[in-house]
Design a protein around this nucleic acid. Structure first.
Length: 330
DNA sequence: AAATGTTTCAACCGCGTTTCC
DNA sequence: AGGAAACGCGGTTGAAACATT
């Protein structure tokens, strides 16, 4: 014996915008139960609402929930969304878990109506996070300034987010991606080595545990051969967030000068460590490595990554072994 | 001031996954 | 174990608000 059909298909069930009375009835019903809904399907009948349970759930989770944050997205939130989208794609619910008080629907809408357009104006493909060909750039607004290695930009972005995100994890994932790109294209070796050097510096500075969520997702994509993301435009925060001079100065400060009193990583908060590391990268810790013999550097720089928590072992995983073997040809 | 175009976002739809019988 | 319902997610729609002509 199965379950009874969903009420969504009942002809008499109301659809469309919710009235204040309906909102009140739904909130009161859920509050009476101490915030526990139980079965959404049974909720409309229990609360006296002529709505589908699915509609009630949507209304509650996207609008009526007391912990929902209202108002405009901050610049930090915007950057976080972009970073997460670059890593996860359109996994709105997963992205929403990293933004307190924001719903997946709200983030999705914000992406489609604001961020997506900004990226296009900057000449960045919002799907791949790679630069569009010049003839695809909208309004002739191309990214300005020097493009730094992607991992540095990610580090700077994550540091700017204030520690809510694991900078080292993002860098690791990006490096894995670049590894594949370098292997495939033969022309990214220098950047890859520079970034591996930067990653080592990050890890040595106390990078945290890799979130399985992000890495697993990335590994899945890598192993299936999916074209992965390179959000190098993240250096261009100011043009993304609205050409604000103050922001430009803050950004410049972020990547060019260490915060006062943080010359040593000992005793500082993780977010500060990330910020310091990002600043260190920008002060060209990476450049000497790029001048050395590529293969020698490459082998040495990969070593520390093998011990990363949550990251598959480059020694034991045959997939990565094969890739590394192939890579020695470039 | 009216018409038209554009943007925004709440809500719906359909599909894949999970849970239940 | 297998089928069906419920759930949750991402894509899409459409009405309202806002901007432009």
């Amino acid at each position: 014996m199965g379950r009874s059909p969903c009420c969504c298909h009942d002809a008499g069930v109301k659809k469309g915008p919710w009235t204040e009375e309906e909102d009140r009835a739904l909130v009161e019903h859920i509050q009476k139960r101490g915030g526990h809904v139980g079965s959404w399907r049974g909720l409309p009948k229990a609360s006296g609402l002529n709505r589908c349970g699915k509609s009630c759930r949507l209304r509650w989770t996207n609008y009526l929930r007391p912990d929902i944050k209202r108002g405009n997205f901050s610049d930090d939130e915007e950057r976080l969304i972009i970073s997460l989208h670059a890593a996860l794609g359109n996994k709105w619910s997963t992205i929403a878990t990293q933004l307190e008080g924001r719903t997946d629907n709200e983030i999705k809408n914000y992406w489609n109506t604001h961020i997506r357009k900004k990226l296009l104006r900057m000449g960045v493909d919002p799907v791949t996070h790679q630069q569009l060909p010049p003839d695809h750039i909208i309004d002739g607004a191309s990214p300005s300034g020097t493009l730094l290695p992607e991992s540095l930009l990610w580090a700077a972005a994550a540091a700017a987010l204030g520690g809510g995100l694991d900078t080292a994890a993002i860098m690791q994932a990006q490096l894995l991606q670049q590894l594949l790109h370098a292997i495939g294209s033969n022309n990214n070796t220098t950047n890859l080595i520079a970034n591996l050097t930067a990653s080592n510096a990050m890890l040595n500075s106390g990078g945290g545990i890799v979130p399985n969520l992000v890495l697993q997702d990335q590994m899945n994509m890598l192993s299936t051969g999916a074209n992965y993301l390179q959000p190098g435009y993240l250096c261009n925060f100011s043009s993304l967030a609205g050409q604000d001079m103050v922001q430009q100065q803050q950004q410049q400060q972020l990547i060019s000068s260490p915060a006062p009193g943080t010359s040593s990583s000992a005793g500082v908060e993780p977010a500060d460590q990330h910020r310091d590391t990002a600043a260190g990268f920008a002060s060209h810790d990476v450049s000497p490595a790029a001048d050395r013999a590529p293969m020698e550097e490459f082998a040495g720089l990969l070593e520390p990554m093998m011990d990363m928590p949550g990251l598959c072992s480059l020694e034991s995983d045959s997939f990565w072994n094969d890739i590394l073997k192939d890579s020695y040809r470039f």
